[in-house]
Amino acid sequence: MKKSTILNRRFRDTTYKNVTLKLVIINVLVYLVTSMIYPRLTYYLAMIPSFVLSGYLWQLFTYMFVHAGFSHLLFNMLSLFIFGSMVERRVGSKEFLLFYLLTGLFSGIASFISYYLAGTNVILVGASGAIYGVLLMFAVFYPYSVIFIFGLIPIKAPILVILYAIIELYSQVFGAGGNVAHLTHLSGLVFAYLYCRIRMRISPLEVFRRTL
């Protein structure tokens, strides 16, 4: 048995406290404030490379709570609530919150480095990076689950994750997909994979191989 380290020492409290719903509420509140009450707040919370270089370091974290429009918010929050709730019940609320926030932060940092090296000054918003990570962990813990795409097409969770990874990688390399932050999505998947391997001591690829 491998010795436990600070990287994989799990929380003793694994109770379910519905952190997922609280995250959804925070995202909705931030959207209401930035879209209806104080729109300029978006520029302080979204991740803008030139602002980060000027000292707005918190944007690497806060960007994940800002959304570009109602449909953007709705899709992300539905995904978070559906898949996040299941993962939270499996790993506990503290573990899920740590995973979610670290995945979003890692995705923000990776995106910032990419934009900085490319000399691109964009406005990055949305919880998609963290949610892609949640989807991967959902597929790891519930590999036999079937997700209905558009409510019609059944597909196993691991296959969906693999397809998403391929699509995002293709779009990032070949510049397809317009203003979608493909690198942020990929970063979420990569960090979730590393989180599973290092902290959870689970190999997602091995789980997928056994269940496909």
Results as ranks from 00 to 15, higher is better:
Y43M: 10
Y43D: 15
Y43C: 13
Y44L: 15
Y44S: 15
Y44R: 12
Y44F: 15
L45C: 14
A46C: 09
M47L: 15
M47W: 02
I48S: 11
I48P: 14
P49W: 05
P49S: 07
P49F: 07
P49I: 01
P49R: 10
S50E: 15
S50H: 11
F51T: 08
F51H: 11
V52L: 05
L53F: 05
L53S: 10
S54R: 13
S54F: 11
G55A: 05
G55L: 05
Y56D: 01
L57V: 13
L57N: 07
W58G: 04
W58D: 00
W58Y: 06
Q59E: 14
Q59Y: 15
Q59K: 08
L60W: 03
L60P: 00
F61A: 09
Y63T: 03
Y63K: 05
Y63M: 03
M64A: 06
M64I: 08
F65L: 02
V66S: 01
V66M: 04
A68V: 04
G69F: 07
G69C: 09
F70G: 09
S71H: 10
S71D: 12
H72P: 06
H72M: 02
L73R: 03
L73F: 02
L74A: 13
L74R: 08
F75G: 09
F75A: 10
F75S: 14
F75P: 07
N76Y: 09
N76T: 11
N76I: 07
M77C: 10
M77L: 13
L78V: 14
L78S: 12
L78C: 11
L78K: 12
S79H: 12
S79A: 13
S79R: 09
S79L: 11
S79M: 12
L80G: 00
I82E: 03
F83H: 02
F83Q: 03
F83P: 02
F83S: 05
G84H: 13
G84W: 08
M86P: 06
V87I: 00
V87S: 00
V87K: 00
V87F: 00
E88P: 05
E88T: 06
E88L: 01
E88W: 11
R89M: 11
V91Q: 02
